[in-house]
Amino acid sequence: MQNISKSFGSQSAVESMSLTIKDSSFVVLLGPTGAGKTTTLRLIAGLEKPDSGKVTIYGRDVTHETPAQRDVAMVFQQYSLYPHLSVRQNLAFPLKSPVLKTPKAQIEKKVDAVAEVLHISHKLDNKATELSGGEMQRVSIGRALVRDPAIYLMDEPLSSLDAKLRADLRLELKRLQSELGATVLYVTHDQIEAMTLATEVGVLNGGELVQFGTPREIYESPSSLYVATRLGLPRINTLPADLFPAAPSGARTLGLRPEHIAISEGTAADGQAARVTRVERLGDQTRLHLKLTGHKVITLADAHSTVKVGDALTIQLKDPLYFDRDGARVERGNK
């Protein structure tokens, strides 16, 4: 898609966005509510018409085509199953399109196969409204999977599920995508989904695509402070740049992820002294809340760390990130 813009009234939802999705890639659009993720998806699906710009699929300009002509499959956030139909009928619905002319036996075979994959075979004859949330969403995903479209569009398909189911389906989705070699554009506000599913992540802010790259790239070298705060748990710590020496010129903000912080107990010569204010033991890891000359810093320590509240520590930096006054990344070239 090229230079796509869309606004609702005076509210701009997507601003001159350009995005190329490679065949068989799993692209995740990550952004908070209102960042234009869903609108982007709907523009590609053809449910919304762009104000300007164009959408192409395999080189074909589809900007003025209907969703049916575009050959896309979509999984909606609110299931959107056909409530008066059974699960089987729901899954068969896209296949019964006259465009496809699928023979009856093949429809049945395909529906059974998809139901098998999504573990809903035993519910095939249930009514769509008699399912639990997780089952409904699986049917909804199944309805997309029975087809073989140019691209699968998924709008936060897992957001309404409970944590365990979300984790299960996340793995399932990833496995399916790599098995089928399908092209997927997936929208979420959940950074774990973005990190685990994506071959490429696009970070959205206020209708603009601010960075696009592999999950590692985006995590390790974010182009801006905004992108840096979207990824990583616990969130990146932001401190004034001049708190530590050796900040590159122009740097205003220092971004510290837990792995950028080396802790040594007691006081050391080079480094800043910090005091432990809180220790959260999460089992597999320990979160330390530190006080560093008036600033709060959260970092990770070993699960068996013996650090107690009130302990004095020394913090040293390991390749931290620097950002200028506008939040843009400053490379530490001069070293």
Partner: peptide
């Protein structure tokens, strides 16, 4: 509305 949108995507006339 979203039922119709889903149907639209599913290429139902």
């Amino acid at each position: 509305d979203y039922i119709y949108e889903a149907a639209e995507i599913d290429r139902a006339s």
